[in-house]
Amino acid sequence: MHDFRALDWRKALVTILMFAASVLFLLPFIWMLVTSFKTENEVFTYPIRWIPTSWNAAENYRQVWFGDYPFILYYWNSIKVSVLTTVISCTVSAMAAYGFSKIHFKGSKWLFLIILTTYMIPSQAVLVPQFILYRYIGLFDSHLGLVIIGSFSVLGTFMLRQFFMGVHQEFIESAKIDGAGHGRIFWSIAMPLVRPAIATYAILRFIWTWNDYQGPLIFLRSDNLFTIQLAMQKFTSMSGQFYSLIMAAAVSAILPLLIVFIIGQKSVVEGIALGGVKG
C-alpha cells in the first residue's frame, strides 16, 4: 500500500516549487498592474515597491481613457471589429462545415481540397495583393475590410466540420423525409447539436481578433478607426517615458480578454487541446 501521508507531503512540496516557477509567468502582469497605479517617479524605484506609496491610479486611468488618446473610442472599435468578425466567421464557417460534412454533392471533395490548400498559405504571403485589392475596391482603411479579412479564416471550417460529422446522418435523413430542406435542418437540428463547438470557436476567434495587431496595422490608417492594439502601440511610442500611463493602457487592453477567458476558460482550453489550433 502507498503511504498516503508521505505522498501528499511530496505533492505539497512540488506544488510549492511549481508555484515559485509560476511567479515567472505572473510577475510581469502583477508588475504591470502595480505600475499602472503608481506615480511616474515611483515606477523605477529599486527594490521594486509592490505596494505603491503614493497612489495615482485614478489619475493614470483618467489620462489614458479620456486624455489625448480616446481609449473609449479604441475600445469601441475593437469591440465592434471583434464581435462582427466573430459572428460572421462563425456563420460562414458553420455553413461551410455543414455543407462539406452533411450535403453530398458533386465537386464537394474538390472544393474542400482547395480550401484545405489555402490553409497552408501563410497570411503574410498574401498581404501585398490584399492591400492592393483593398485600395482598389475601397475597403482599405475601414472596419468592414478588417472584418471581412478576419471572417474568412478557414480554420473554423475544419474545426466545426469535425463536429458536424459527429451529427448522426439519421437525424438528417429523417428530417428530410419529413420534408425539411437543408436550411431548416442546418438551423434547427444540426446547429443546436454542435452549439458547444461553436461557442468554443467563437471565444477563440474573439480572442484572436481582439489581439490582432498585423491586420489593423496594414489595413487601417485613420487614427479614429484604430483598434486597441494599434492605439496602444501608438500611445507607447508617443508617451515615451510615461511608463505608468503605458501600463494603465496595457492593463486596459488585457482586461476584457481576461474576463472572456475566465468565463469561457473550459471551452478555450478544450478547443485548444482539441485541435491544437492557433492563429
Partner: peptide, 12 residues
C-alpha cells in the same frame, strides 16, 4: 491570451 502588444510593451 494577453495581446502580444501588451506583452511586448511590458517587457520593453
Amino acid at each position: 491570451i494577453s495581446s502580444i502588444v501588451a506583452v511586448a510593451v511590458v517587457w520593453q
